[in-house]
């Protein structure tokens, strides 16, 4: 990189100018500018989260102070204890865990075979499916939630965890299909053909040759579906009424609105706890997700 830029500067048509020092100075200036910009981005991206962490560990006295500080003077875990007594966080976390895990597993089981077909046979079906992925993104949820609400009500699945799981599973299907199709394409068909030549049947080939190669992609897609469902708010808000069935995001909103300054601590603590699973899982799959999106993008 640096070599290239030296060549570039030297190649400029400025016969009299002593090249070396000026270009070096300019390069330093560019670098400084780049680092300054990067630091500004880092600050912008990080500061709300750091503030959340800071608030979560502050005692009420400091939260009420006129001049809030970045670092809690006397950090405390009280807010976390308070959060659990104010709202049924454990139940809510259990509900979220159940909905997210079950719907992610269902989505993967349903999507993987179809993704295989979409990747291997490009035809009308594949185009229709891709079209649907795009269209399903464009429609406002309100147009889907009203009929879903009415349909689920007919089957007594409103205010039921099973109903929510079904909705989540189907809702994560488009993205799961999109990602998995990319992963299947990355498995060369020659591998499967070789297995077929060796006399393995079609199903056998899929199970013992293709599936293991796909495993990392399947895990990443499943975790992504899990995070999506864990974070989801709108469907849960509309479909669940009983407090003991509500998921974490919905329960978190119960903290809001009536908060005096003293309640900010528990609010921040609960919000922080609710985020940790998503953050940890996302850190695990980050590379694969961006890779999967790349794969999806490259094919078009």
């Amino acid at each position: 990189m640096s070599q290239v830029s030296t060549v570039r500067r030297a190649g400029r048509k400025s016969p009299v100018r002593p090249a070396g020092r000026r270009t070096a100075a300019r390069r330093t200036a560019t670098r400084t500018g780049q680092y300054a910009a990067l630091l500004a981005y880092l600050a912008f991206l990080a500061f709300p989260f750091l503030w959340l962490v800071s608030t979560a560990f502050k005692p009420p006295r400091e939260l009420g102070s006129i001049h809030p500080t970045w670092i809690p003077g006397a950090p405390t875990l009280d807010n976390f204890r308070q959060a659990f007594t104010q709202q049924p966080l454990l139940t809510a976390a259990g509900n979220s865990l159940l909905a997210a895990a079950v719907s992610a597993v269902i989505a993967i089981v349903l999507a993987t075979p179809m993704a295989y077909v979409l990747a291997r046979h490009r035809g009308r079906l594949a185009r229709a499916a891709t079209g649907w992925v795009v269209i399903s993104q464009a429609f406002p949820l309100v147009l889907v939630i009203i009929p879903l609400f009415l349909i689920l009500k007919n089957f007594h699945l409103v205010d039921s965890r099973a109903g929510l799981v079904m909705v989540y599973a189907v809702w994560s299907l488009p993205f799961a299909l999109w990602m998995l199709t990319g992963y299947v394409r990355a498995v060369p068909p020659e591998v499967e053909e070789a297995a077929a030549v060796d006399g393995a049947g079609r199903i056998r080939t899929l199970v013992s040759v293709t599936a293991p190669l796909l495993a990392p992609g399947i895990v990443a897609t499943g975790l992504f579906a899990f995070i999506t469902a864990w974070n989801e708010f709108f469907f849960a808000l509309v479909l669940l009424k009983s407090p003991e069935k509500q998921t974490l995001p919905v329960v978190l909103t119960h903290f809001i609105g009536t908060e005096g300054v003293a309640d900010l601590g528990p609010l921040a603590a609960a919000a922080l706890l609710a985020t940790l699973p998503s953050l940890l899982l996302f850190a695990v799959i980050q590379r694969r997700i961006t890779g999967g999106m790349l794969a999806g993008a490259v094919k078009s």
């Binding site: 989260f49 995070i227 864990w230 989801e232 708010f233 995001p249 909103t253 998503s278 899982l281 996302f282």
Partner: peptide, 8 residues
């Protein structure tokens, strides 16, 4: 920001 629940 991507990983965080919108509510949070």
């Amino acid at each position: 920001p991507w990983a965080m629940p919108e509510v949070v």
